[in-house]
């Protein structure tokens, strides 16, 4: 069982692992989109200090940031069906991937909301004052003046969060998802060479992360010229 490390296997495994990469990408993409949308909502609630919701959101964010994602994942997996069962809805048959997407979406929202909130508040108040004084409405001000500037400030942190999300997604296999990591388990069970699989998976995650950073770097350089 304890055989020697077979370097060739690392490369032989790559194609099989890459065949499951779409799950990883789907997970990261949907969680990011959901995270930015829901995160913006949460951020706005906190900025405008909407009575009770503000405190609830603060507690929610604190919880998500203070607990391991694997714990969150299983709480969603066991908890959501239980709650909905009490309302008469049975979701026990749903694909596990959906629970995973919900977990990562909720998790990302918490982090995104903090980034968005700090980016918006960092735009100096003089900007909105100037905007109102030339006759723009609140919404126009947000879309044309505050928003773009906040986005520029937030971009580096957003890209870091996406890379973090990518790395966190490596945990989803413990729920039984067959993504890249899940495929490593499958291969390992077949051949007993799990470590080569993990190394191959490591390479895949490293490259994906590098791509995200490169892309965001390009975007950062670009918006600097076009928007300011």
């Amino acid at each position: 069982m304890a055989q020697y490390f077979d370097g060739k296997l690392v490369f032989e495994y790559l194609p099989e692992l890459l065949s499951r990469i779409h799950i990883t990408l789907l997970l990261v993409f949907t969680a990011t989109v959901f995270g930015m949308i829901f995160g913006s909502v949460l951020a706005l609630i906190r900025i405008h200090k909407i009575l009770i919701l503000n405190q609830l959101v603060a507690i929610y964010i604190s919880f998500v940031r203070g607990t391991p994602i694997i714990v969150q994942m299983f709480i969603v997996y066991y908890g959501f069906p239980a709650i909905l069962m009490n309302l008469g809805i049975d979701i026990n048959r749903w694909d596990k991937l959906i629970f995973v997407i919900i977990t990562y979406g909720l998790n990302t929202s918490a982090f995104m909301s903090e980034i968005i909130r700090s980016a918006i508040t960092s735009v100096s108040i003089g900007q909105s004052e100037a905007s109102y004084s030339v006759g723009l409405t609140k919404i126009q001000t947000f879309y044309r003046i505050i928003g773009p500037q906040a986005l520029k400030t937030a971009l580096p942190s957003i890209s870091t969060t996406i890379v973090g999300l990518l790395q966190d997604s490596a945990i989803a296999f413990s729920l039984g998802i067959v993504d890249v990591m899940g495929e490593v388990q499958v291969l390992g069970a077949r051949t007993y060479h799990t470590i080569e699989g993990y190394v191959a998976a490591g390479i895949i995650f490293f490259v994906l992360g590098a791509i995200v950073e490169k892309v965001s770097g390009c975007i950062e350089k670009n918006t600097l010229f076009s928007k300011l």
Binding site: A2, Y4, L166, A170, I195, G202
Partner: peptide, 18 residues
């Protein structure tokens, strides 16, 4: 920094075992 911590844990574990 580019490899998930899960993988680092598992790789070190299996490497040590072997």
């Amino acid at each position: 920094k580019g490899v998930p911590v899960v993988l680092q844990l598992l790789i070190v574990y299996f490497a040590v075992l072997q």
